[in-house]
């Protein structure tokens, strides 16, 4: 099982080396800068669509929400409309909290007891915090990258950049300079959250035991992406103008190999391409799947509104007639009413 993270780590390092060698040694610029990103994007779209449509192809025969609060019942009993929704609005609310705030994961902290209360619940909230930090930081980082694809840069991206760089960190020493260009908090939050999630997987026996290589791989991959991004923004600076020109070229289907950009950019680009291509074929599809989870996206109004199962088929049952046939005598003897007296 330790093979799992060793393997994933090695693969990610190898991928980085391949990108570097591909550009610096073999000079396959066209392949790595143009073919790979396009192929990755196509794989993403096809894979994503296939996966989601595959799910859509399966039926939802029953309405099986996991109810996490009081149901809609008598009018004087207060219903928990979010955790046990009986209307579409309620379901939308529940899904919103689930997707936007990871409500179920947060639930872990709810129980607190004074006596004997110790560590275990604390790391649970850390899982929630780290998960939330990771996802939001990642979203901000992705959205910030839109500046490379739009000219002029959209207002909301500028606002996001402004907010992200609101806190100024400036540190200036011979071997470590950071602060110009302005520090984006999201990148560091992303990296920190990733390291926490990775550490959790490696050091918590339980989680390590259930983790597969495919759990470590995306972590290492995104760590690689975040680290290379941070390196090239603050430490080994690259020609941003050339990169934007390249990105716009990709987006307008007039790709052009960028010139004079540091090798670390190619590593970054290649790792991102791998992530994008890998996404639909992995557990990362939880991003799409969460919308389709039948225990969350259905209202608990089963007794109020009939749910139709399209493949419902008739089955052989033991009818009353068969039953009475077998026990008629005993029923009559016991004075239980029967359909046919003889």
């Amino acid at each position: 099982m330790n093979l799992n993270y060793l393997f994933s780590f090695t693969v990610v390092v190898a991928l980085a080396m391949i990108a570097w060698a591909g550009i610096d040694v073999w000079g396959l610029n066209g392949l790595f800068c143009i073919a790979v990103p396009y192929v990755a994007a196509i794989l993403f779209i096809i894979g994503f669509a296939k996966k989601v449509l595959g799910w859509a192809d399966s039926y939802v025969p029953f309405r099986i929400p996991t109810t996490c609060g009081q149901e809609k019942s008598l009018p004087w009993i207060k219903q928990n409309k979010i955790d046990n929704p009986s209307t579409t609005t309620g379901v939308v609310m529940r899904m919103f909290f689930e997707i936007v705030l990871f409500r179920s994961l947060f639930r872990n902290t709810k129980a607190k007891f004074k006596d004997n209360y110790r560590l275990s619940y604390r790391w649970e909230i850390f899982l929630w915090v780290a998960a939330l930090a990771f996802h939001y930081a990642f979203a901000v980082v992705v959205l910030r990258h839109l500046r490379f694809f739009f000219e002029p840069v959209p207002q909301f991206v500028q606002l996001l950049e402004k907010a992200d760089s609101f806190f100024r960190f400036e540190f200036f020493a011979p071997f470590f300079k950071i602060g110009l260009p302005g520090v984006y908090l999201s990148g560091f939050v992303l990296l920190g959250a990733l390291l926490f999630l990775l550490g959790r997987r490696i050091f918590l026996g339980q989680v390590r035991y259930v983790s597969l290589a495919s759990d470590y791989f995306p972590l290492f991959l995104i760590i690689g992406i975040a680290a290379s991004g941070i390196l090239m923004r603050y430490f080994a600076k690259v020609d941003v103008i050339a990169i934007k020109e390249f990105a716009m070229g990709l987006a307008s289907l007039h790709p052009k190999v960028p010139e004079g950009v540091g090798a670390i950019f190619y590593v970054h680009l290649f790792l991102v391409s791998v992530l994008v291509a890998y996404f639909p074929y992995s557990k990362l599809m939880h991003a799409g799947g969460i919308f389709l989870s039948p225990t969350r996206n259905l209202a608990n109004n089963n007794r109020e509104k009939r749910h139709i199962n399209p493949w419902n088929y008739s089955v052989k049952t033991h009818t009353y007639e068969e039953y009475e046939e077998e026990f008629r005598e005993k029923m009559i003897e016991a004075g239980i009413p029967v359909e046919k007296e003889q």
Binding site: I45, L146, F149, F150, E151, I241, A242, K244, E245, A247, M248, G249, A251, S252, L253, H254, K256
Partner: peptide
């Protein structure tokens, strides 16, 4: 997801720096 593509294809903007 593909907004950058449509935007750049139809806005007629040149990618050049």
């Amino acid at each position: 997801v593909t907004v950058p593509l449509w935007y750049n294809l139809f806005s007629g903007k040149k990618p050049a720096a």
